[in-house]
């Protein structure tokens, strides 16, 4: 009973945090939706840990709790992979930005040099 209370409260706390972050626009929609979906699965499980026992039996896993642990680890791994993918995309984007910036600076410098040239030949 005590355990259910602890896990249930943890789940609700997480839910509250995510909803609040979304409300304050600190979390992009796509990530917010992902975590909300996870919580929709996790909260009932935290209240009724035996919920998955049938599924576990079907898959040949000894208990629902180990199944949850297994699925949790797989899910976290997937999240890590996804984040690496996002970071790679971001790195590619900053690289493009840096190039654009350097090209712009080169153009401005060339313009300025040309103008200075004109001024010195005039004067």
């Amino acid at each position: 009973m005590k355990l259910t209370l602890v896990t249930g409260l943890t789940g609700l706390l997480l839910l509250g945090t995510i909803v609040e972050l979304l409300r304050r626009r600190q979390l992009r929609e796509k990530y917010g939706m992902l975590w909300l979906a996870v919580l929709v699965v996790v909260i009932p499980l935290s209240l009724f840990p035996r919920l998955l026992d049938n599924v576990a039996e079907l898959l040949g896993v000894a208990s629902g709790v180990s199944l949850v642990l297994f699925l949790g680890i797989v899910f976290l791994l997937l999240v890590c992979v996804h984040l690496s993918w996002e970071v790679s995309a971001l790195e590619e984007e900053t690289r493009t930005l840096a190039e654009d910036f350097a090209l712009l600076r080169a153009e401005i410098d060339a313009d300025r040099a040309a103008r200075d040239e004109l001024v010195s030949t005039d004067g």
């Binding site: 909803v19 979304l22 409300r23 304050r24 626009r25 929609e29 917010g32 939706m33």
Partner: peptide, 11 residues
């Protein structure tokens, strides 16, 4: 539906 719900709870 998701975007609308989110927009409505957002500040």
């Amino acid at each position: 539906f998701a975007v609308l719900t989110l927009a409505l709870i957002r500040r």
